[in-house]
Design a binder for these strands. Structure first.
Lengths: 230, 230
DNA sequence: CATTTGGACGGTACTCAGTTCCACGCCAGG
DNA sequence: CCTGGCGTGGAACTGAGTACCGTCCAAATG
């Protein structure tokens, strides 16, 4: 209505909000300020964004659904690998946002309310991971639930670590770093196969007539499978 | 003023709030309702509790300080052990609260705003752990930061796992379970000795003319030493 | 005893986020 | 022409949180 060639009201609201947050800070910006700059009515703001915070975090819910879908159709050998793969979706989403993601990071670094909200979002991913892993390995053994919890936390943390490095510009190839980090996470949980009594460490020794190089691919495959490791 | 033998206003407010939350639910209870039942003025409520949510989470800040102090004076062999020890303070705090902690758990399970706030609190503990671990092992090697992140997340998750089990009454000796969980966490990170270059999982393949049985004793001796394994 | 001072409390008025409801304009298709 | 959706604007309301001030009480001080 106000100007007919302008981009859709939703985008104007986001632009107005982010620029005002940059100029005056988040707390010093009221919703009235935002709608005034965007040239729309106050109702319109809350129609598009459920809250003032939601302008900053537009689509966590959609991403959560995408991950759920990915996990549902995933046919990976182990739950941890499937989750490590699914979490790439999250990183990819941020990478596609590009500069927007960095502006948001600058905001969340300053405003604790926004930081808390982002942490809550991450916790939802982590919860989804945990539920998936728990479902994957029935809750047979005691300690399975704890293990699932640890795995989900590790995947989420490793992702956040790489994401923050990229957001701070300390990282040239975030996807490669994510893969490396996930390798480390998987190695964490596949290596020692902790026995019930605690001090773990299963060792498999074997003899082969083939050179080391010929054995490596098979070794990798074995390590990736791991499984119950009773 | 209203009644002179009553317990201090702060406690009356907490009681009134929690009972009203139980009766009508959190969202359906206004601060006016609370102060009316407590028989105090509205200003008094916000004097004691900075927000409506804060009635439910009284002393996370104090606990955070206690942990900081504990970590500062800790002279443990490794950072992970020190953190695993410090996190006992958190669990002990909840255990001392007893029934109050369970009422809070029932609330946070229903009200997402409260759940989010609790998650944010936990994230602060985790951040403190991460900073401590990072400081302990200088940031020499690349991958050290990730490792610190994973350790902190593992400790926090293991604690939360045990805490939730106790809150749900699935647990008779929570401190013992916490110790066991921390053992598992420590085992996770001490076993495989990840190499400096990132991709973890060192595999040693060798060929020997001797039968497997002859090699086992030597293998055991090697594994018992383990140590740095650079 | 009178006065002062400081702290705890109550009350009022305000800002702002978020909700609800309604009214208006615009653009189909009948 | 009008009719029924649909996006929008606007007004009024609730409730959390803040700022400020007045009051009461009690202990300290003369």
């Amino acid at each position: 209505m106000t100007s007919r060639s302008a981009p859709p009201a939703r985008d104007r609201l986001a632009d107005a909000a982010l620029s005002l947050f940059d100029e005056r800070g988040y707390d010093q910006t009221t919703v009235d300020d935002i709608v005034e700059r965007a040239g729309v009515g106050r109702s319109t703001f809350f129609r598009y964004y459920g809250s003032k915070e939601a302008v900053v975090f537009p689509d966590h819910d959609g991403l959560l659904d995408a991950i759920r879908a990915r996990l549902a159709t995933s046919s990976d050998a182990t739950a941890l690998v499937a989750v490590s793969d699914a979490v790439r979706l999250v990183l990819l989403h941020y990478l596609e946002e590009g500069e927007i993601a960095r502006r948001r990071y600058a905001l969340t670094s300053k405003v604790s309310a926004l930081r808390d909200r982002e942490i809550a979002s991450v916790a939802r991913y982590q919860r989804l991971f945990r539920e998936f892993i728990t479902a994957w390995m029935g809750d047979e053994a005691p300690g399975a639930a704890l293990r699932a919890e640890l795995m989900a936390a590790a995947v989420a943390s490793a992702h956040n670590h790489v994401l923050r490095r990229w957001l701070r510009g300390e990282c040239q190839d975030p996807l490669a770093e994510l893969d490396a980090a996930m390798q480390e996470v998987i190695a964490l949980f596949t290596a020692p196969a902790p026995t019930a009594d605690g001090a773990g460490t299963t060792v498999v020794a074997f003899q082969s007539s083939q050179p080391l190089d010929a054995l490596l691919p098979a070794l990798r495959r074995l390590l990736a499978e791991d499984g119950p490791a009773k």
